[in-house]
């Protein structure tokens, strides 16, 4: 037991654990609404935009975090908050934005000797103090938001036409969800990796929907599944010296597979 906890004597592991748990929780909560609104690919698109922004910022010797957050927020608002009324045209624009950002990011990194692998698949060492504090802020914001506006989030997710027709201010809810998603993706990207952060948006929500039939329960279950999978994945990645993103996603996949077998 003592040996088990010894890994958390390292400050970087403590930070990775705290930041990761918060990001995992936020991604799961936000993911429920995104998946139900058929926006599952948005996390993927935004993470690529974040990658592009971080690379360009690094090349220009700017703070990656403070460049990526506003850029990804802008992308999220364009893709999510602006909305697409009834038709679903979002699909192609997400893919275009995502691949374009990836290309720009790779070009910006060329010759810099930066470790592309750690950007793509995440690194346990990546969370700095600054990011951890931001994570705490984000976590508090998302939790308060979901506690206060659960019904409104449900209303908008379930039926936007009705919500708009009956004069509920769903524009603000949409905007808040988009901005929270952006920050979550940016903060999670360094730890989970560009290619895998969107799994945190997707898997817990899908797993929770396997076992829960009430919106409130889906939110709680997704949060719990996500946090547990993250903690387990992080420990495994430390023991076996694997990329944390991959182990966390594998844990999520295992849970999803298990729940799918149970509920068939």
């Amino acid at each position: 037991m003592h040996e088990f906890f010894s890994m958390f004597e390292y400050a970087f592991m403590q930070r990775a654990l705290i930041a990761g748990i918060i990001v995992a929780l936020c991604a799961a909560l936000l993911g429920v609404s995104l998946v139900l609104r058929r926006y599952a690919m948005i996390g993927d698109g935004l993470s690529h935009v974040a990658f592009g922004a971080v690379s360009v910022a690094t090349a220009l010797h700017l703070s990656p975090l403070w460049v990526a957050i506003p850029v990804v927020m802008l992308a999220a608002v364009l893709l999510l908050a602006a909305g697409d009324r009834e038709g679903k045209r979002g699909d192609a624009s997400v893919a275009m934005l995502s691949t374009a950002s990836l290309a720009v990011g790779v070009l910006a990194m060329a010759g810099k000797g930066t470790d592309v692998y750690s950007y793509m698949f995440g690194s346990i060492l990546a969370v700095r103090i600054e990011e951890m504090w931001l994570c705490l802020l984000l976590g508090a914001g998302v939790l308060v938001f979901f506690l206060l506006f659960r019904d409104r989030i449900l209303s908008m997710t379930f039926d936007e036409s009705f919500a708009r027709a009956s004069g509920q201010h769903i524009g603000r809810i949409r905007l808040a969800l988009a901005l929270f998603t952006a920050v979550t993706v940016v903060l999670g990207m360094r730890l989970m990796g560009t290619l895998l952060i969107s799994a945190l948006v997707l898997f817990p929500a899908m797993s929770a929907m396997r076992i829960c039939r009430r919106f409130g329960h889906v939110l709680v279950a997704a949060g719990i599944i996500s946090v547990v999978c993250f903690a387990v994945g992080l420990c495994v990645s430390y023991w076996f010296d694997l990329a944390p993103g991959a182990t966390v996603v594998s844990a999520n996949l295992a849970v999803y597979a298990l729940l799918s077998l149970i509920r068939r």
């Binding site: 019904d151 449900l154 509920q168 009430r214």
Partner: peptide, 15 residues
């Protein structure tokens, strides 16, 4: 959609 009957009906009162 994963929601209970009560949850859905309650969204009618939000305005």
């Amino acid at each position: 959609f994963p929601a209970s009957v009560e949850e859905v009906v309650r969204t009618g009162c939000l305005n």
